[in-house]
Write a protein that binds this DNA or RNA. Structure first.
Length: 562
RNA sequence: GGACCCGUGGCUUAGCCAGGAUAUAGCACCGGGCUUCUAACCCGGGGGUCGCGGGUUCGAAUCCCGCCGGGUCCGCCA
């Protein structure tokens, strides 16, 4: 839809530049200086760019370009307006009509990407429940996966399970020592983990027991392996349950130990040694990346011979690169340095580097969270509270409905509110968790968008069967604005997928709902003369489809009634 | 100390990578709108030295340099 219009504008503009024999300077990806603008559907300020080269005024250049452009009769571009040095392009009626028609069906909502992507996200250590920081990772990762899928890619999501680290050894040790209580598995694991850390702090001698566990596990000790598997599986089962509440699931789990056991890790070590950049220092095997701007050496193997996270991660990343076209990692800000070291090392090995999406930390009003110290707000607690609040809201608004309906709506509203709250903020922004904000269901939130969708469904329900319609009748300002906003969907998804910036889609969702609500307010549908009624009904259907697909791509349920 | 990220009305935030025409929204505040398709909505209003100082440019929230404030990292942890 909008992408087609954009391409046509590009062709026209390039043709005019060519015809005028202008030389377009190379500068970045937006050479034609195209932008969506309040003055036009698409505006170009390319004349400014050409001015210094041609030694003429931007205005004169724009005029000449304007004279050289005539939109073709079969195209989507209407008038081209000359506004001083600016060239303003507008969509024509044919475009608007075709959007309404296309948006009746399902085919127009998928992009043209054909590559295969692996998105790794969450990958939290199985030492406790997900907290409000972890789920920033989960929601960003899951939304990116959905956006890529929507854009046409074949996507697999993966959870990389840390079963070999020190923290997991502490969990196993604590589980043996204290035993698990009957609370939700991940929470029960957290209890023994926190307790074990307390004991280890109090008596540093106990640390030796942890080291022994790590050595035995890496030495393929069957008894330890069984204990690790059982503890990790248990924690993951709880984590999965939480993710399910967030409408998130993983297609595959990869355990770190796979790469240690299979010998892939050993192969990576050998290949790194072949680069000549490794050395033994203080008994440990290290990689010197000082030539790449890293002052500290990267330790690949401990003095006691056991492996480290980074080494296993190299093997995992090689596996991923071999099995897809696009490797995407979602990582917290604490992984910035290590992930650029990882990428550098992968570069040395000739392995394609991952695209890393870094998100900044979520902190509490009184400081950062810590699973080890038991200082965190769990995702379960957040969801419980938001659900409770949502239930009250639904009960106030729909007192006549039964409890089952109200519970169901509350659950879906809560899930949407939590996801939207996270995804609407761009990842590089550090945030502070705030209950008041989390429990607010007004305009900058998922319920606002879900509500628009429910309204559309309600109209369609009342209207009954839909017949043929003439999109030409949709002439009101609010109607045209809504059609254009619906058309923008493909552009937003395409950009969002290319740049891995899911918050752009969140923004779009709000704008789309806004456009729909204005249309809803100003254009009565059911009580107008039949021809107009049919046209507006078609627009409601188009809007409903756009809202539903947008919500689904954000992983938020599109409620039909709320 | 070094590296990276952030700094936009009282609070939260889009735009920054690819510099352009009146800087985006929300919350809060003030005023208006439910006998009409669900008011979790809509309309209007006030409120901004885009952290500070230089520079590049016809033009800077956007690019460059310096500074200030906040976050993250700099482990034979992950």
């Amino acid at each position: 839809m909008f992408l087609d219009f954009m391409s046509e504008v590009e062709t026209l503009l390039l043709g005019a530049i060519d015809q005028c024999r202008f030389e377009l300077p190379e500068n970045g990806s937006n050479r034609l200086q195209l932008e969506i603008s309040p003055h036009a559907d698409v505006a170009s300020s390319v004349a400014f760019r050409l001015a210094p080269v041609l030694r003429r005024s931007p205005k004169a250049i724009a005029e000449e370009l304007h004279r050289s452009m005539t939109p073709g009769p079969g195209g989507l571009v209407d008038q081209i307006e000359l506004a001083g040095p600016y060239l303003n392009f507008f969509v024509n009626r044919k475009f608007l009509n075709s959007v309404v028609v296309q948006a009746q069906g399902q085919e127009c909502w998928t992009g043209r990407l054909t590559d295969r992507a692996i998105v790794e996200h969450t990958s939290a250590n199985p030492n406790g429940p997900l907290h409000v920081g972890h789920i920033r990772n989960s929601v960003i990762g899951d939304t990116i996966a959905r956006v890529l899928k929507r854009a046409g890619s074949d996507v697999e999501t993966q959870y990389y399970v840390n079963d070999m680290g020190r923290q997991i050894a502490i969990v196993v040790w604590g589980k043996d020592r204290y035993g698990l209580d009957s609370s939700k598995p991940d929470h029960a694991i957290a209890r023994v983990y926190i307790e074990a850390n307390r004991a280890l702090n109090a008596d540093p001698e106990l640390k030796r027991e942890i080291d022994i566990l790590i050595e035995r596990y890496e030495g393929k000790d069957q008894e330890v392996a069984a204990k690790v598997k059982s503890a990790v599986d248990y924690a993951i089962s709880g984590i999965e349950e939480t993710l399910r509440r967030l409408n998130i699931s993983h297609d595959a789990y990869h355990w770190e130990s796979e790469y240690a056991v299979s010998g892939e890790m050993a192969d990576i070590l050998q290949r790194l040694e072949n680069t000549g950049l490794t050395q033994w220092e203080d008994g440990a095997f290290q990689l010197d990346l000082s030539g790449y701007g890293f002052e500290k050496k990267m330790v690949l193997k401990r003095a006691d011979g056991t492996s480290l996270y980074i080494t296993r991660d190299l093997a995992y990343h090689r596996w991923k690169a071999q099995h897809c076209d696009r490797v995407v990692d979602i990582l917290g800000a604490d992984h910035k340095l290590i992930s650029s070291q990882l990428r550098t090392a992968l570069g040395l090995l000739g392995v394609r580097e991952p695209e890393v999406v870094i998100f900044e930390f979520v902190s509490l009003p009184d400081g950062s969270m810590s699973t080890r110290k038991g200082k965190f707000i769990s995702a379960d607690e957040l969801l419980d509270e938001v659900e409770k609040q949502a239930f009250e809201e639904v009960t106030t608004r729909r007192p006549e409905e039964g409890e089952e309906f109200r519970r169901d709506v509350a659950r879906q509203v809560a899930l949407g509110a939590v996801r939207y709250d996270i995804i609407k903020v761009s990842p590089e922004k550090a945030t502070t968790f705030d209950w008041k904000n989390a429990l607010d269901f007004e305009k900058l939130s998922a319920p606002f968008i879900q509500y628009s969708h429910a309204r559309a469904c309600s109209i369609l329900r009342k209207a009954g069967m839909q017949g043929s319609f003439d999109p030409e009748l949709l002439q009101d300002e609010n109607e045209v604005a809504l059609i254009k906003k619906i058309a923008e969907f493909d552009l937003v998804v395409d950009r969002s997928a290319r740049e891995l910036k899911p918050h752009q889609l969140a923004n779009y969702a709000r704008e789309l709902a806004e456009s729909f609500n204005q249309f809803y307010r100003f254009s009565p549908v059911l009580e107008v003369e039949p021809a107009l009624r049919a046209s507006r009904l078609a627009l409601v259907n188009a809007g409903r489809n756009a809202l539903r697909v947008t919500l689904e791509t954000l992983g938020i349920p599109a409620l039909e009634s709320m």
